Simulated scan of single mutants.
Amino acid sequence: MAQQMITNFNGILLFRRDYRERDMLIKFLTAEYGKKMFFIRGARRRGFKMAAELLPFTMGEYVGDLRDGLSFINSVKSVQYFENISQDIALNAYATYVMNLLDVAYPDNQPVGRWYQQLTSALQLIDQNVAPALVANVVEIQMLGAFGVAPELRGCTVCGRTDLPFDFSESYGGLLCQQHWHLDPHRLRASQAAIFYLRQFSVLDLAKVHSIKVKPNTAAELRRILDEIYNNSVGLRLKSKRFIDQMGSWYQPLKPRDED
């Protein structure tokens, strides 16, 4: 992209930050150019004309002056609000977490490929209260490659077999079939149900999802596996994740429809 360009763009508002006395910095994930930081002059003044269009948990089509440094928004063409996320503390927490993950995983001003659509779908599902914890799991699993940790989930990392029970080995960077479990005494000893969903979630297109149903015990085990990977292999402990842990809602669906 050129150093300066006035153009239409589609964006998901990732976060806002007060800047100076009356201004604001807003980071968008754009479909076309990746993450970009925008300087919004006068955004904190009473009567600011774009105040409603630049609220947290919004996405839309904008016209802006896009630059390699701070960019600027000229006008808003259309906007979509994630109203349930805005009003529900638990949904808010999951939405914030998946957006934080993407923000940390990718540098600014670089295209993020399919992640604009995948994040859009994730936020839409969370806003509809469709298994928010499991949607977050999908994002976590698929985001591992961006953090330089891409576990082998297609088959056994040693022999490639796909016809035996699996377990997850951090030491071997993915699955071990039953024939090679002895190679890693510290394997995670995951259930076959948890391994099944770990593999399924790694390739799931959230745009095609209308519901996700996983038994509570399996969901808790998925959470344990992903915590191990993110703590030990990625080394990432986001505040938004700690808040979810404090809520205690990782292990219990928000509504009965999320259960089998």
Score class of each variant (00 low, 15 high):
residue 2 A to M: 13
residue 2 A to H: 15
residue 3 Q to A: 15
residue 8 N to Q: 15
residue 9 F to S: 02
residue 10 N to A: 07
residue 13 L to M: 13
residue 18 D to R: 12
residue 18 D to G: 10
residue 23 D to Q: 00
residue 24 M to Y: 03
residue 24 M to D: 06
residue 25 L to H: 11
residue 26 I to H: 13
residue 28 F to Y: 07
residue 28 F to T: 14
residue 30 T to M: 14
residue 43 A to N: 04
residue 44 R to V: 08
residue 45 R to F: 13
residue 47 G to T: 02
residue 48 F to Y: 15
residue 50 M to D: 13
residue 51 A to T: 11
residue 55 L to H: 03
residue 55 L to G: 06
residue 56 P to N: 05
residue 56 P to H: 10
residue 57 F to W: 11
residue 58 T to A: 01
residue 58 T to W: 14
residue 60 G to W: 04
residue 60 G to E: 13
residue 61 E to G: 12
residue 62 Y to V: 04
residue 62 Y to M: 00
residue 63 V to Q: 15
residue 64 G to N: 00
residue 68 D to M: 14
residue 69 G to P: 15
residue 70 L to N: 08
residue 72 F to T: 04
residue 77 K to D: 03
residue 78 S to T: 00
residue 79 V to W: 13
residue 80 Q to K: 15
residue 81 Y to R: 06
residue 82 F to W: 12
residue 84 N to F: 02
residue 88 D to V: 05
residue 90 A to I: 07
residue 93 A to S: 15
residue 93 A to N: 00
residue 95 A to Y: 06
residue 96 T to H: 09
residue 103 D to S: 01
residue 103 D to L: 00
residue 112 V to G: 06
residue 113 G to E: 12
residue 113 G to S: 07
residue 115 W to S: 02
residue 121 S to D: 12
residue 127 D to K: 04
residue 128 Q to H: 13
residue 129 N to L: 08
residue 129 N to H: 11
residue 130 V to P: 10
residue 136 A to Q: 04
residue 136 A to I: 14
residue 137 N to V: 07
residue 140 E to S: 02
residue 140 E to G: 10
residue 141 I to R: 02
residue 143 M to H: 06
residue 147 F to I: 01
residue 148 G to H: 12
residue 151 P to M: 02
residue 154 R to Y: 13
residue 157 T to C: 15
residue 157 T to V: 14
residue 161 R to A: 08
residue 164 L to P: 08
residue 166 F to K: 00
residue 170 E to C: 04
residue 171 S to K: 14
residue 171 S to H: 10
residue 177 C to L: 02
residue 179 Q to K: 01
residue 180 H to N: 03
residue 182 H to L: 00
residue 186 H to Y: 05
residue 188 L to T: 04
residue 191 S to P: 12
residue 196 F to E: 11
residue 197 Y to L: 13
residue 198 L to H: 06
residue 198 L to N: 07
residue 200 Q to N: 03
residue 203 V to P: 13
residue 204 L to F: 07
residue 205 D to Q: 08
residue 205 D to G: 08
residue 207 A to K: 14
residue 208 K to H: 08
residue 208 K to I: 14
residue 212 I to T: 03
residue 212 I to M: 11
residue 217 N to S: 12
residue 219 A to H: 08
residue 223 R to S: 00
residue 226 L to E: 03
residue 232 N to R: 15
residue 233 S to M: 09
residue 234 V to H: 09
residue 236 L to S: 13
residue 240 S to G: 05
residue 241 K to S: 11
residue 241 K to Q: 10
residue 245 D to E: 12
residue 246 Q to T: 12
residue 248 G to A: 03
residue 248 G to D: 09
residue 248 G to Q: 13
residue 249 S to Y: 09
residue 254 L to V: 08
residue 255 K to N: 04
residue 257 R to I: 09
residue 257 R to Q: 07
residue 258 D to S: 10
residue 258 D to C: 09
residue 259 E to K: 11
residue 260 D to Q: 14
